[in-house]
């Protein structure tokens, strides 16, 4: 494993110097097709969009003029900006919590690749395959006021049970975040299993010899070593929550009122009204939140990777 330590010593971005001697620019040629695509269809549209955030641009007129922070002010006046940011953060937090607790629990229970475990893994992975729209429709139906969940609760509770899960602002927000988690928990599970498998068995044996019980071993040995898997799941979870649109569209349409109108939905609404400047402004807010949350996480992930 000499190469691994060499790699570690050099750090993440320090590539070996030797290949350069062969062909100084092959790196560039290999990356070029991907670079062209990413620049043309991600960076250029993204920068254009970021620029539009500071313009007066609507469908009503073909003139586009700079207007500074006017779009942000308008959104704040309408109460859209702060509310959507708050809703987005709550959504992301709930979704990530459920996803990671559920994923970790399942991974821990199903780590060994036995026959039964494989069946359970396969079952819990199924929701990952379902499209966001489908997930939204399925749960909108399950949670409907007269839907299966309430039918079940009415059957076991005295006096029946009527509650509009998606009709109350708080429960609706929690519910859509839960649906998001439901869809992705299977993936989180596999990532955690991969993480658990990467932990050397000797560490457990050593901990067991030291007299640590299963619970202690879980917290003291597994959890710290799962940090990379955790970072990965959190980043993917945040990304998913920030760009979540189809689940919310199918389940609540952003309602009741604006209780589930996350930034992405709010931006989409502004587009629909032909208010492209304010829509771009909301997109930019999503980007900024993504960068602020994800970049420290990614660099933390990379540091740990080096330490391992």
């Amino acid at each position: 494993m000499t190469s691994t330590t060499r790699q570690g010593r050099r750090g993440a971005f320090n590539a070996p110097r030797r290949p350069r001697r062969f062909h100084p620019t092959w790196h560039f040629w290999f990356a070029l097709p991907a670079i062209i695509l990413v620049l043309a269809f991600f960076l250029v549209p993204f920068l254009a969009n970021a620029g539009f955030a500071f313009t007066q641009w609507t469908a009503y007129s073909s003139d586009i003029t700079w207007n500074g922070f006017e779009n942000f002010r308008t959104l704040a006046d309408l109460g859209v900006l702060g509310h959507a940011v708050l809703i987005t953060l709550v959504y992301a937090a709930v979704s990530m919590l459920v996803q990671n607790v559920g994923g970790l629990f399942l991974a821990n229970a199903l780590q060994e690749p036995t026959r039964v475990n494989n069946v359970f893994r396969a079952v819990f992975f199924i929701p990952v395959l379902v499209s966001g729209l489908a997930a939204g429709y399925i749960w909108a139906a399950l949670l409907a006021a007269q839907g299966p969940l309430n039918q079940f609760l009415s059957a076991i509770l005295p006096g029946g049970f009527v509650y509009s899960w998606l009709g109350n602002p708080v429960s609706a927000l929690v519910a859509v975040a839960f649906v998001d988690a439901w869809k992705w928990v299977g993936l989180a599970m596999t990532v955690y299993i991969a993480g658990l498998n990467a932990i050397p068995k000797q560490l457990f044996e050593a901990a067991a010899l030291d007299g640590a019980g299963p619970w202690r071993r879980f917290w003291k040995v597994k959890v710290p070593l799962l940090a990379p898997a955790f970072s990965f799941n959190v980043v993917i979870g945040i990304v998913g929550a920030l760009s979540s649109l189809d689940i919310i569209f199918a389940a609540t349409g952003g309602g009741p009122g604006d209780a589930t109108t996350v930034l992405q939905v709010a931006s989409y609404r502004q587009y629909g009204q032909g208010l492209f400047g304010t829509a771009s402004a909301l997109s930019l807010v999503i980007a900024v939140i993504g960068v602020v949350i994800a970049i420290p996480l990614i660099s933390a992930l990379r540091r740990r990777e080096v330490r391992l």
Partner: peptide, 25 residues
């Protein structure tokens, strides 16, 4: 590679995962 240009484009590629698509442009 450790080249500056590639580090920048790698960073941009990583960002493309987490930022919402800009449909109109």
């Amino acid at each position: 590679s450790n080249a500056m240009g590639l580090r920048v484009t790698f960073f941009i590629s990583a960002m493309s995962i987490m930022l919402p698509p800009a449909i109109i442009p």
